[in-house]
Design a protein around this nucleic acid. Structure first.
Lengths: 388, 388
DNA sequence: TTGTACGCGTTATCAA
DNA sequence: TTGATAACGCGTACAA
């Protein structure tokens, strides 16, 4: 017991941290009164004068409530865990910022858990994220990847993941709300309108006159990328004469470069100019950067010879030359809505699913294709409009 | 009291979280024995058989110690706070990752506090970062910017900040260890050899033949940038005939572009080719990206007409065209060392200051200047070698 | 070798 | 309007 006093900090003046009892003594009241006042629940229970004197004493002593004790007593920690596949990414950093800002407004903290397994099944974060938490916000993860996390049956919000049954949007047929998840109610979701974003890009390219488009797709098995692929296909399927190819690659620049090279060299590797896609529609700005490199390696100019589009609108997008046509994602908003949904969950409120709009930002990397569609093309190949 | 059971989670099977008493009952021992066994302090105090049965019971019940209770009892939270000026930056994300990895190895967690004020004085993080913490790691902040944080007199480690008295390096004269900080012992530091990095860049440019160099400097008052400016000056001062200018700008691409335009247009804004710097040495990759834009706007090619160098070696560096000569920073190492220093501080160990080496990564953005220094230059202007 | 008892600082219930 | 008092779950002297 006597050793406890020595422990605190490394400073010289290790004055023991004042407790609520110290404040009570200083103010000449009881501990309970201090708790009431500082907890903001005094109106009607403690006289204004007493309340003021308590606050004064607390301020004087520099009193800070002991969070551990509070948590022990209340059972809540006022802390949320944000699980992200990779922190080293602008998008997730912004999601965090948005979540943390809202959390702070409500006296909550947010701790980050970069899932080591990427989007795959997350290993129990409680092992390493030592902090006790009240709830979890999981971003861009497979719906079932949270097995380890759900262990405690904690309130959960999913970001950019499988959409909840019906969002009022167009495509998804409204199914029975509880049919999807077997043993557990489907968690609230905050989604980006990625499908719509992808459609915007595809339509933009089509409107420019592109008919041979290759989708440079991220080779990652997560909802967001599956949705994107489908959206592109839907748009292109509806355009007579359009031809869509898909080239998959890992989510890094080098892989993207290789994939783009394959795409631009054409089916047989011959590099014939007329079989070549006139536009590369990429799943991310990073992939688009790789596509730029491939184009340059082949002596092709962007956008004169080949148009390139990205997704995410990172700072990278405007750093590239020419600046990259991309899709701006309201990352902070996603984080903020996620946190709000979690807070709502704490209150026992329903927390309706949210879908946030995204916006195409056209820049210099997309232009009309080298040969406008109206002109006579040399060997007018007749392929089916919807390739496999 | 009866209400407490209902609180947990949102799941249907809200089985109350097992406590150590539950484990004790299940194993047929006392609570104290459970604590001893699970705390790993049983050897010599509890029989192996009992220990095993306790562990079995704990595993069976899925017991997880209540962190709040543990913290309350021990006075420690096993959590460190990492203060960074901006999370939306690859570098800090990597620092976090490095710190978190080391922390996890030691059963610690790391929570992030993105200082809203940037590198300026940080507002009390305890207000928003609700988590109780054992110590603080502050990255890239002014030494005195942590006034609000030091409040509790918590153990503190500084990253990429004012160096501790003597690091064994070259420049700083070894002063009395405690002379610098007035009321408090100087915190351990983990530094990058930014000065050396900058010297490497400067020498690289000089070796290529550059004599007219403009330092595109970040207009941020922090140690790291002051050191960089000085290092460049030192190198250039030692080169006969070299001329260094400095152009300051905010840490973003747009500002960098403007600053680079000013630099490239020359002193009088005339844009004369011979007064123009042949190299732009930038304080960061982002600034370098802005410099690229300025060069293009003026119809100058990189590196044929003007060389550009960066700092940080973000992914952006290799996304640019041509790829950017930059300085690679071991960000994860910085975080890891920072966490180790903090752990050492917890142990009461001295924690020697660390300086981590950085490495120049030459790429395509730097080349020989348009006019080699040996050639006769038209109107050989005679300016002093070290401009203000 | 094991069990008992106490207290960490807070909040919440109840009686005054 | 206020003050005792009892938990919350755990770690650890101390007694058995």
């Amino acid at each position: 017991m006597s050793g406890d006093g020595t422990r605190a900090g490394g400073g010289t003046a290790g004055a023991a941290r004042p407790t609520s009892r110290d404040v009570a003594r200083a103010a000449g009241v009881s501990q309970a009164t201090v708790s009431l006042v500082l907890g903001g629940k005094w109106p009607g229970r403690v006289s204004a004068a007493t309340a003021e004197s308590v606050r004064a004493a607390a301020g004087e002593l520099g009193y800070r409530p002991n969070l551990a004790a509070r948590s022990l007593r209340t059972g809540r920690t006022r802390t949320a865990l944000l699980v992200v596949p990779a922190l080293t990414h602008e998008y997730f950093a912004r999601v965090y910022a948005g979540a943390a800002a809202v959390a702070a407004e409500h006296g909550f903290g947010v701790v980050l858990y970069p899932s080591p397994a990427g989007v795959g099944p997350a290993r129990d974060p409680f092992g390493s994220a030592q902090t006790a938490i009240d709830g979890v916000i999981a971003s861009s993860m497979a719906a079932d990847a949270l097995g380890g996390i759900g262990g405690g049956g904690l309130p959960l919000v999913m970001l950019d993941s499988e959409p909840a049954p019906a969002v009022g949007g167009a495509s998804a047929p409204a199914a029975a709300p509880d049919r999807a998840a077997p043993d557990r109610a489907a968690p609230p979701t905050v989604n980006l309108a990625v499908a719509d974003g992808m459609r915007q890009v595809a339509r933009h390219l089509v409107a420019l006159g592109h008919r041979r488009i290759t989708h440079l797709a991220a080779d990652v098995d997560s909802w967001t990328f599956r949705v994107r692929a489908r959206a592109v296909r839907e748009v292109l399927d509806a355009v007579p004469g359009a031809r869509l190819a898909e080239e998959r690659c890992a989510l890094d620049m080098g892989a993207a470069r290789e994939a783009a090279l394959r795409a631009l060299r054409g089916p047989g590797g011959a590099g014939g100019a007329d079989g070549r896609p006139t536009a590369l529609l990429c799943d991310g700005d990073l992939l688009a950067a790789g596509a730029y490199k491939a184009a340059r390696a082949l002596g092709l100019r962007v956008p004169e010879d080949v148009s390139v589009s990205g997704f995410d609108d990172l700072v990278l997008a405007s750093a590239l030359e020419p600046e990259l046509t991309s899709v701006r994602l309201p990352a902070e908003e996603v984080g903020a809505h996620g946190m709000r949904a979690l807070l709502a969950l704490f209150e026992g409120a329903p927390a309706a699913p949210v879908e946030l709009p995204v916006r195409l930002v056209p820049r210099g990397s997309t232009a009309r294709p080298p040969r406008p569609p109206g002109c006579p093309v040399p060997p007018s190949r007749d392929l089916p409009p919807a390739p496999g």
